[in-house]
Structures are given as C-alpha cells and as structure tokens.
Write a protein that binds this DNA or RNA. Structure first.
Lengths: 218, 218
DNA sequence: AAATAAATTTAGTTATGTCTAAAAATTTTT
DNA sequence: AAAAATTTTTAGACATAACTAAATTTATTT
C-alpha cells in the first residue's frame, strides 16, 4: 500500500502528463505540489524503488504501467466522490474539489464500486471530466477548447479543464455551466479574448478562460 | 488541526472512558491502539501541550472539554458514515467499521452536516449506537445488556456495543439484528451463558455475547 | 514495611517526508 | 565552444510518530 504523499505525487505526475505528453520534470512536480525540488527528487527515488515510475536522474519521470493504473484509480475516486457531493449532497461544482482531495484517498475498492453503482455508473463528473471505469479506461470524448473555435461558432459546453474555485465561481457568475449554449460573436486578435453570447447576454471573456472551456467536437 | 495519529488517540481515550468512567491508563491505550506504552506516553505529552487532555505523569489521562468535543465529533462522523454505507450503498453491518475508520477523518464540517441532512438526521447508526448531533450531544437511551436480564424476560434488541466483524457476523448467523425479539429461556450459572429463543429457534449464547447485546430498559 | 511485581516514563534509535545550502549536470546564451 | 543560467541532485537537518531497553514510580505481596 502507498502513503498519502506517494499518492499525491502519482496524481501530480498523471495530471502533468495529460497536458504535456512529455516526461515530467522535477520542477513541474515541485510547482504543483508546492514542495522543494529536493523533496521531489527524494520521492522519485522512492517511487522508482516501488516501480511506480520510470525515472532517470536529470532526465525526468513518467508513470510505469502500474503507477498509471494506480493514479487513474485515484482520479476515478476523486471524480466519483465529486459526483456524489454535487448530485446527492447538494454541493455546487466549485466547492467539491477540496473535499474530494481527501475522499480520493479512502482505500476500499468495494466502497468505490458500490458508490459507482449508487451513482448509476456516471461517465462524467460535475465538471464534465470523464470518470475512469473500474478497469481504468477513461471515456474519450473529442472536445476542443473554446478558444480554438471560429467567430460565428455556436455550441454547447461539454466541460471544463480545471477544477479551481475562482474559475468555477466566475463561470457561474457568467451563467456558464455544463450544457450552456455559447456563441462566438467576435475574437480580439490583440489579446486573443472573445466576445461571446450566453443566454442572450454578451460577455467578454479572456483567452485564459476560453482555453479552459471545452466544446463538443464533431 | 490535529493529525491522524492524534485523532486516533483522542478516539481511543473517549472509547475507553465510556466503559470505565475512570482516568485512562497508558497501558489501556497501548492495548487498544496496538502501540507500545512508551509511544503512548510520548503522545500524551503532545496532547497535553495542545490542551486536548488532562494528564499527569503516572496518574492516567482524561479528555479536556475541547478534546472531548473533538473526539465526539469523530464519533459522529464515524456513525454517520456507517449509516450511509449500510442504508444507501448496501453494505451489511459487519463490513462498515473499517471503512468508517478512514472516512471519520475527513475534515469538512459542511460535508458532514450535509451528509447528516441527506440521511435524515438519524439518531442511531446501523449497530444501534447513538449518533452525536452537531452540538456534540449524544442521544441517551436507557439500555441494559442482555446478560443482566432474568429468565423469562422477552424484549427487542436495541443495539450492540462492539463493532467487530466476527461478532456481528455471528449475530447475523444467529438471526439477531436490531429489533429482533429475544426471550431468555434459561441461564447457566456455571459459565453465565444463556439459552435464548430467537425467531422461534433456541440458541445457546455465551456471556461474552450477551454482554454486548443491548436491550431496551424501561 | 520491605520486597517483589507491574506499570509508566525516559533515553536513545529509526523511517517518512519535508527543508536549506551547496554541488553537479544540463540547457541556453553569447 | 565557452560562459552563464537554470535545473536537478546530494548532503545534512528537522519534526512526527513509532520502536526497544533501561530506569523510575506505583501497586501488590509477603
């Protein structure tokens, strides 16, 4: 069995990999986990020992097969708990991340499988993120971030790519949630910001915001 | 905020106090937590420092007011989670203790209050144990253990006092659950065991078993 | 009330996971 | 291709929470 700290490192490596597809650097991990690079090196040695990662000094790290399965299982637990919190306990989507950060470390497999059944085997969490199944397979939906769509495009929000309270509260204020129809009215070349129509109201959103909103891709 | 280890010590002290009403000894704690007495001494010093216990060298320990509130809150979380696991996820009463031992350490107060509401503010958990409310008040039901009842007594099971898989599985085999009617047919003086009737079937149960079954007391 | 036994504490170690400062390797710039 | 900058690792410390062995205190016998 792995410790809390080990689990958090595996999770961090998986998350960084999703964005970069390259080997993960010591510094990236230390930024995500807010620890010193020296601590990261220490932990990578330990994870290598346990064969949860492939790691060579100065060359970066990636998850081994078993490490990846382990990390995906944590992600599965995180997203199932978030779904429970929103759909059954009445939390809103910006509140659940922190609590799920704790719940994702509960070990019982039977618990998580029963929770999955209780929730009706959901494929997506309250942020539209895919929930890995028991076998670690992540449902694949082709999606594009809003910033890549052209002026004139109109479509529905599929999900978001970050689970940050400030971001999600801002979206809520803009009346954006999963399924919301968004139309691109204009794109500002200078700062890549967008003027969009949501529920018949025009709003000006930054590139950073658009980048983290996912739209269905046919 | 207190660590996992600290929480487990507070919990252990509370549990022992329920049975003894005296100051709790180092040895008792080390037995419950399966640590060495020396480790217990170390931790008691730390808890004293934090004013969670009243402790004098060689004289035993008891919870301070704040320590007691803290420990009761852990108990509240434990019992609410057990209720959720049995009533909504379909676990049986002998499986939930271990999982609740992990869930009870999840910190969010908002989570536990919402869970409480979701469950309909239950007063008793699946073992018949009272669930402390948000204010730390524990519902008080007068109950007597089965071993203290006389021959000829007939009544209903209110709950059990231990949360042990072997014990609960045995009760299930005997067809004993909460609400089950039990009649005392005979008491064996030699070993204090009892012959009882449950659902029209006679069974011979030991003193140790009877001691841990609670009966309503008028 | 001594002597013995039992319980508890102290002292000294260990493993985990963190840190800072310094050294080494890699990458980027000139 | 050297020099400079950045990244990463090593070395040495520290806090937590555990341990064993030895010392001390308290409780029980005789």
């Amino acid at each position: 069995m792995n410790t809390l700290a080990e689990e958090n490192y595996l999770k961090a490596i998986l998350n960084i990999s999703f964005n970069t597809n390259k080997k993960v650097s010591t510094n990236e991990i230390s930024n995500v986990l807010k620890t010193s690079p020296a601590s990261v090196t220490d932990m990578l040695k330990k994870l290598l020992e346990k064969k949860l990662v492939e790691y060579e000094k100065y060359k970066g790290v990636e998850l081994s097969n078993s490490g990846k399965q382990y990390a995906i299982n944590i992600l599965r637990k995180h997203r199932l708990w978030e779904t429970f919190l929103v759909e059954h306990l009445g939390f809103n989507w910006s509140e659940v991340h922190e609590i799920a950060e704790e719940l994702e470390h509960i070990k019982s497999t039977k618990l998580i499988d029963k929770l999955d059944a209780f929730l009706g085997y959901p494929k997506f969490d309250p942020h539209g993120e895919p929930i890995p199944n028991k076998e670690g397979v992540i449902p694949n939906v082709k999606s594009t971030s809003l910033d890549q769509m052209e002026v004139g495009f109109a479509g529905h929000v599929l999900g978001v790519t970050i689970d940050d309270k400030l971001f999600l509260d801002y979206l809520t204020k803009l009346n954006i949630k999963i399924g919301t129809k968004i139309e691109i009215i204009q794109k500002i070349d200078f700062d890549k910001s967008l003027i969009v129509r949501i529920e018949n109201i025009q709003n000006h959103i930054s590139f950073d915001v658009a980048k983290n909103i996912l739209i269905k891709n046919n």
